[in-house]
Design a protein around this nucleic acid. Structure first.
Lengths: 219, 219
DNA sequence: GGGATGTATTTTGAATACAAAGTTATTTGT
DNA sequence: ACAAATAACTTTGTATTCAAAATACATCCC
């Protein structure tokens, strides 16, 4: 018997709107008008409303009662806050991944690391971001902590939506990804945690640098 | 001029249902029937639907399309996953609170620590849980990281809804809360982080103990 | 001309209506 | 008597309708 993968309209609406935000079709602070979106997607306003709730959960939009829903714009300090959290959580995930990843799972991860390096070699920004996203997410999946996985997934989406360009040298990232794969393959939790910490720490410092620049400009 | 605190029905429904889950009026795995809730609250199904979305975001319910929405039941391993995350995040919040909490804010926190001790002295379970919740949340608020605050708020709610009784000696918790206040007051980030880590670590170990018991019983 | 006031339009939030899927109960055949 | 099939009913998901609030616009007054 064939299982029909059936999508609720609200789900489709959620993905459609999220896509529009990620591609920049919907700009930060832009108001999301229910009827416009409903007409564009060819559905009624009801599923749009449900989609808004999920987007708010993902922190991609902000809802102000009786005023509307707006694409959320993160400030650099807010992004730094997110990095502070990632810097604590992703090393945890890397540790647990190293503790109990099966060989087959490590191979999948290794392929994602290879894809990242390939994307860097090609220089395709979009592809690099996607590969990075997939790699980090796969590590969290291997950690076995589902809640952790979902939290990092959300943060990654936010960073993609809010950060143009890269935070650090992608070649260096590629090397670090492969070091992490090695640590997980070798069941070395301490090393996995350390590599992930350093890896994210540098991106975080890049954001700090940007904040320093900004405050310098203002003075 | 007085600001009118106006509540959207969806918001009210959300709080009402959340309360029912926290008090145990709605039991784990129980199905939430839209119309029953709507009738009980004297509103239509539409705001109930929006409330469901928010409850799902808070992980208090699980939605299965075309089947219904059910009160989520966490297993002990899942609760341990949550503790693993708290163990990484709350020390971070304590550190940042110690870095830049204003004296007036520290006083508010100190009062919450006192209230916790008073609740322990009285022995009122509900009051102890509330005081603990308020204290931990206030530390996160003082950290200045809004996202961190919201994440911990959600986790606390989950733990309240899923853990009956305490994880550790509340008298010990009271002492640790006051040690933390001292560290924050003295602007000692390292000490604040260490105290919070130890504090949560013990609760986490209590959960691990419970998991060990369970697996022992089965054998 | 600039600001305040009132009116029209738009947009949201909630209630109701309806069709499709799921659940339960009943019937039918062996 | 039991299992399969079917009918009756719930319940969900979506659309539509309606009322209240917010925004935009025009008019009036100074």
């Amino acid at each position: 018997m064939k299982k029909i993968e059936y999508q609720v309209l609200a789900q489709q609406a959620y993905q459609a709107v999220r896509g529009m935000i990620l591609t920049g079709e919907l700009k930060p602070n832009e108001k999301l008008v229910q009827e416009d979106l409903a007409r564009e997607l060819g559905i009624s306003r009801t599923p749009i409303l449900a989609a808004f709730s999920r987007l708010e959960r993902d922190m991609l939009v902000v809802s102000i009662p009786r005023r509307g829903v707006f694409v959320k714009q993160f400030s650099l300090p807010e992004l730094l806050n997110i990095y502070d959290i990632r810097l604590r959580l992703e090393p945890l995930g890397a540790r647990h991944a190293a503790e109990h990843a099966a060989p087959a799972e490590v191979e999948t991860l290794s392929q994602l690391a290879t894809e990242f390096v390939a994307a860097v070699a090609e220089g395709d920004f979009r592809r690099i971001k996607d590969a990075d996203h997939s790699f980090h997410l796969e590590v969290m999946r291997l950690s076995g902590n589902q809640i952790l996985y979902e939290m990092i997934a959300t943060f990654n989406i936010l960073l993609i939506a809010n950060l143009k360009g890269f935070q650090k040298d992608p070649h260096k990232s590629g090397t670090e990804h492969q070091m992490l794969v090695a640590a997980i393959r070798g069941n070395d939790p301490d090393e996995a945690e350390r590599v992930m910490y350093e890896h994210i720490s540098e991106s975080r410092n890049a954001i700090r640098g940007r904040i320093a620049e900004e405050s310098h400009k203002e003075s």
